[in-house]
Amino acid sequence: MFKVDSLEYSYPGNAKKAVDKLSFEVKDGEIYGLLGPSGAGKSTTQKILIKLIKDYKGAITYKDKPLRAYDNSFYEDIGVSFEMPISFSKLTAMENLDFFRRLYKRTVDVEPLMKRVGLWDDRDRKAGEYSKGMKIRLNFVRALINGPKVLFLDEPTNGIDPLNARIMKDMILEFKQAGGTVFLASHIMSDVDQLCDRVGFIINGRIHEEDTPRNLKLKYGKKVVTVEYRENGLLKSSEFSMDALKGEDFAKMVREKQIETIHSGETTLEEIFIKVTGVALHEQQA
């Protein structure tokens, strides 16, 4: 869908490259997550892909045609949900959507979308009266208003309660199942883990690691199983390598001990993120 080759970009008046020889591919029908600490180049990359930044170096193709060759009809194909709440505060939610709907040739019925994200009952309230979470959900509906083929999502569940975040993630997965492609920029690792087919870790404008979340977990995780058990009233633990699981020692322990927990040594995307980027999540979220 998108092929990015040796992409370079520096902001005017800034010698440091925001994006430096960046190469990756977003395949048709996949959810690709771009992860990285603040200032790593995620948003810049997204802005380039959605044609808001045009004076870049390198090659980008969309559907095998140079991105530069597309005119504004490109936007008929894509939907963008920015991280910050964006709406005309003195217009109602429906008036906001109606304004944007009129800018596209092809649009979808917003009622099911608004009902799904739980905004239908508040559709006639001014967007300025919405909470941050409601505004973000409205952003999301607006991104879907033209029935896009590609969705660009920047921290789509940031500031949203877990229930509504779950609904939005389900909608993103359904969008993918219907053939859509998603480019997700985020540092909420649970979202990335649940949604992305592949992820790329970007640091200083370059991708340092790229694979499926599963493969990354296998690569960075320990191939061990830790068993916690109770013995003489004391909590103890033993670690077994994956290869040792077929052996008698592990089987004996499971048979004879009072097992309380068994954990594999699979790592989390958060730990991989910290290892790869060298930046603790809590630092950049602060």
């Binding site: 959605i50 009809s73 910050m84 964006i86 709406s87 607006r142 033209n146």
Partner: peptide, 11 residues
């Protein structure tokens, strides 16, 4: 309200 950003990612 940052709405110009949204307008510019429409056709």
């Amino acid at each position: 309200e940052h709405t110009v950003n949204s307008i510019m990612v429409t056709p």
